[in-house]
Design a protein around this nucleic acid. Sequence first.
RNA 1: GCGAUUAUGGCGGAAUUGGUAGACGCGCUAGUUUCAGGUACUAGUUGGGGCAACUCAGUGGAAGUUCGAGUCUUCUUAAUCGCACCA
Length: 814
Amino acid sequence: MTARYNGKSTFEEWQKEFNTEDRYNFKAIEKKWQDIWDEEKSYKVEIDHNKEKYYTLVEFPYPSAQGLHVGHPRSYTALDVVSRKKRMQGFNVLYPMGFDAFGLPAENYAIKTGVHPAVSTASNIQNYIRQLKSIGFSFDWDRCIDTSDPKMYKWTQWMFLKLFEKGMAYKDKIAINWCPQCKISLANEEVVNGGCERCGTQVTKKTKEQWMIAITKYADKLIDDLEGLDFPDRVKSQQINWIGRSEGAELDFEFGGKKLTVFTTRPDTTFGATFMVLAPEHPYVAELKFENDDEVRAYIKQASFKSDLQRTMDEEKTGVELKGVKAKNPYNGEMIPVFISDYVLTGYGTGAIMAVPAHDSRDYAFAKKFNLPIIEVLKGGDISKEAFEGDGPHINSGFLDGLGKEDGIKKAIEFAEKNNFGTAKINYKLRDWLFSRQRYWGEPIPMVHCDTCGWVALPESELPLLLPEVNDYLPNEEGESPLAKATDWVNTTCPKCHGHAKRETDTMPGWAGSSWYFLRYLDPDNDKEFASQEALKYWMNVDWYNGGMEHTTLHLLYSRFWYKFFHDLGYVPTKEPYNRRTSHGMILGEGGEKMSKSRGNVVNPDDIVGTYGADTFRLYEMFIGPYEQVAAWSEESLNGVYRFVNKIYGLFNKVYNIEPSKDDLRAMHKCIIEVTERIDSMRFNTAVSSMMTYVNYLSGLDKVSAVMYETLLKLISPFAPHVAEEMWARLGHSTLVLKSDWPVGDPKLAQDDVVTMAVQVLGKLRGTIDMPKDAPQVDVEKAALALDSVQKHVGSAAIKKVIVVPNKIVNIVI
RNA sequence: GCGAUUAUGGCGGAAUUGGUAGACGCGCUAGUUUCAGGUACUAGUUGGGGCAACUCAGUGGAAGUUCGAGUCUUCUUAAUCGCACCA
């Protein structure tokens, strides 16, 4: 920290010594300041009750072998800017970083090469840290976490035990994708057009007992508590739609001597039900015999190859009638045919529907295809053309005739309840969370199965339950996780009865660690608790959480749920973890195509930092476009930002210890106000524009007042911290610019004395007038009418009205 | 299919949220510096017409509300993202 100031007492004196031929050497500058920040631990943060805290959080990355993508630094830079500004404004800022280290690619790499995932993950993490440091982010590296570290996953396992203890974790039979060739369970992502990604074999389903988490119990809270959170509307509505709360009724039909229950949001339309549809997997289909059994079984097999997504997307409806058995409509006693079709899913409702083709478009399409009757029971549409899903008076509906939709629903449910064949019911699209993976590289689930006691939780004292070593990472013939091969590890004693027991061999999904990682940052070395109550009380909530839109319905929802559960148990202080959520747009390749290895258009941050420097890279990431929208990478535009940084560097040679003029101050305060506002409202691209305008102004001056330049350095320091720090030091400061105060803009000094007002005739621009600010309306009107161009267009017409918007516009209506 | 988002010059985008459309940057054109390339600097740059003053058109498309619409309303088209075992 020496050699910053060469001992001269004034700028002028010192400047004479400064070599004006000096070129902007970002490599030396950036290395120098990164070393200083590292040595001084400039970003280390501790609980400090004398300061207001601010917790900024970005989604931690999965440490892939490819290293950082230029998409990552977009959000990291944005919140780095926010964090740095907040620090300068006096906040105690926590801005941490860690690694979501468990995951499929490391495991697949291990299957191929035999390299232990822990080994490849560790080297990937080192590479990420190197890259992140080279960009100059202000993370507190002392709080770096890694979800695959036993010190961390001990607490993930502990949390699972809490979920189990409270009945929130349970076992259920769920189908998985299974490749009969590779004998491995596949993620949806690994299924390409119904085939296995590795070998192309047709993927089948295999049913397994798996751990589920009862997130649906929190469905209502997850919807209701969104209110009041500072989340973008699109995030809120996506979560609400994902949870898909719908009010309706469950109704019992009679079918082959059994009670067939359906869920419907429109019980009022039951008189229009002309057939029923079961999901092919519906248990009754397997239990009953049909006249066309062969046809039915063949259809079920065919449907098993399709994913739910494919099934809902197929426009052409398919299905088979279950011949020989009909269903009885409880409202009118009519016997109607029953079909199976893959547009009905087992996962939602009861896996069976009553079809009202006149008033549901999917049922309509099905009825048209199979030539089934369509009975109109609500007036208002034209059912010869399409299904009518709106509201209107009921017809052909017995006791519901004449009622509208809402009253009809109420009456229909009343009737069903009175006659004991149905009840009001709220249904959710949200399904319980499938928490088991037949994989190696995840947190072991700390449960053992005992023949006498059933599923028994490990005692807390045995945590962390470490991942055992295995020889290969493939599942066994039965599709069990590779852990099943570690027989020494699997065979154990029951913690309850001390008899023989076997460990659970499934592991947790990647979502487990990421559901609570933001709490671990608060107290990363704690081995008694996942985080101390003191740390939780001081740091929570996260004030600003940024992450991708693609996480809205999974990670963001899971972690809100997880946090709420632990709030109900009293472990965390608030009911919601995140105060504010924002989402960055994706960065596409040059020309607007997605960056991918196969297209060869992936931009490596290392190359950009190496060629232009971290400051240019950071500024460009912010300048590339509106933060929440997608943006295409452009090396040409990057060049413009590089010029901008060079200009800032070059301006130093014009700095003198002089008083700023009134115009100078106006430009300066305008810039302060704009940059401050635009950082807060995430308009980083226009914040950079403001500074460019300011720099252009300064470049036009012969001499630049030191105050003007210092202010520029402060404003730019969150964006381009290295060059800001360097020039700040060259000005003679012996403290860091990052420890200086954020400037405060004075709106009065930023104001113009003279405003240019537009003059319109009938809404068309005909000229402008320069008026003193806040000139009286009469003066403005007079000046406007005096314009030749205005007179020309007004002519002899009578003036009806003159609209004056102060300091902005005059519109003459004739 | 369901849900969400976006659309403005040659390109990325801006517009004080209903008030001068095109800030800022890229690119391009001309000029200066340079042996030359690059850099740097100066001027210009939405399209049509005009020497010019000026004028007409213009924010994916169609209609509407308003003194005034990129912004509000209705309809429509196209593109992008997510859809539960990638994280």
